[in-house]
């Protein structure tokens, strides 16, 4: 199948008074139609910046220094603000963590839901209202007609997030970006929202880029997983491979640090140290100061990306060692 989204060697910098911070350091990935890619990593690893770059909403001091982002074969970088505006909410939509900051508190739910439909789909107000009611029903909001007249503050957190999803899906985008959409919600509401998103994805066949730090959520909804650390992709692969055969020591560490409810004898694994700052220049592999397997080469040279299987890549020198081992055992 053709790729819906192709990101090639993306580099994002932030200008500060003192220097230029490299937030994303040359990452590449692709996404197929109907697929969910989860980007995981800890705060400051560049996962949100990656999704903001795709939709062209980087903060004003951020700039894409290099690379290419293609949606359905069309290059997005270099598009003017007007061209991007036509795409946003139409072909690409985004859901944020805190719906209260994304909804306008001074307009009704109905007004905000109709807006993208009237702008992008050139619907009349009446048509848009009808469609809005359908959308609210679709995301499981009771009494949609009444809800259209309400303001965001009158809804609960879970309901607001549903409204956000309804807005994002209004124009049936081909790509949905979701940045920690369930992190602020209670587990019971989170479960409902995840189920809803999965169902809608299936119905509409869109591609989803889902940014999260919760490995449990990843296991529930991802088809493929991309693990980021300090601005780089360290591992990418199918969800089963990442959880059952993780290759990169950071991925292993992350999985071990998640408290498991079902396992009686589970001990939390601790990754020593903490995430480097964006301006920390680390020689060699950016993970080596925290890595339990660090070798000489890790301190000197940044690893290249090794192919573990055809759809599984790991950016770690250990992979080369195992490749050599494999050669030895076969010869």
């Amino acid at each position: 199948m053709k790729n819906l989204l192709e990101v090639e060697n993306l580099k994002v910098n932030f200008r500060t008074k003192k220097e230029r911070l490299r937030a994303v350091r040359g990452i590449s990935f692709s996404l197929k139609k109907g697929e969910t890619l989860c980007i995981v990593g800890e705060s400051g690893c560049g996962k949100s910046i990656t999704s903001l770059s795709i939709i062209g909403l980087l903060p004003s001091n951020g700039e894409i220094a290099e690379g290419s982002i293609k949606l359905d074969g069309n290059e997005l970088l270099g598009k003017t603000e007007n061209e991007l505006e036509i795409m946003r909410g139409n072909e690409i939509s985004m859901i944020f963590q805190e719906p209260m900051t994304a909804l306008n508190p001074t307009f009704t739910i109905g007004f905000q839901l109709r807006e993208p439909l009237m702008i992008h789909k050139k619907m009349s107000k009446k048509e848009a209202t009808k469609k809005s009611i359908e959308l609210l029903e679709k995301v499981g909001i009771p009494n949609p007609v009444e809800k259209l007249r309400q303001f965001p503050h009158e809804l609960s957190g879970g309901m607001r997030q549903r409204v956000m999803i309804a807005m994002a899906l209004a124009c049936e985008p081909s790509l949905l970006l979701a940045d920690e959409p369930t992190t602020a919600l209670d587990v019971t509401i989170q479960a409902q929202i995840l189920e809803l998103m999965d169902e809608l994805k299936r119905q509409m066949g869109m591609g989803v880029v889902f940014v999260t730090h919760d490995m449990g959520v990843v296991a529930e909804i991802a088809d493929r997983v991309m693990v980021m650390y300090a601005g780089e992709v360290v591992e990418i692969g199918d969800v089963d491979r990442i959880f059952n055969h993780p290759q990169h020591p950071y991925t292993k560490g992350l999985l071990g640090a998640v408290p498991n409810v079902d396992d009686e004898e589970h001990h939390l694994n601790i990754i020593p140290g903490s995430m480097p700052n964006l301006d920390d220049e680390i020689s060699g592999c950016r993970f080596h100061p925290r890595c339990p397997y660090a070798m000489d080469i890790c301190r000197k040279k940044n690893p290249t990306t090794f192919q573990v299987t055809s759809s599984h890549q790991s950016k770690c020198w250990l992979q080369e060692v195992t490749d050599v081992d494999r050669l030895h055992t076969t010869s």
Partner: peptide, 25 residues
Amino acid sequence: KALLSAIPRPVPGRKKNRVKMQGDI
């Protein structure tokens, strides 16, 4: 039961036996 069944488990492909709960608190 509902709370426990709603926790996302770090096990891909696990069968979900969710205890359904209606609405919000």
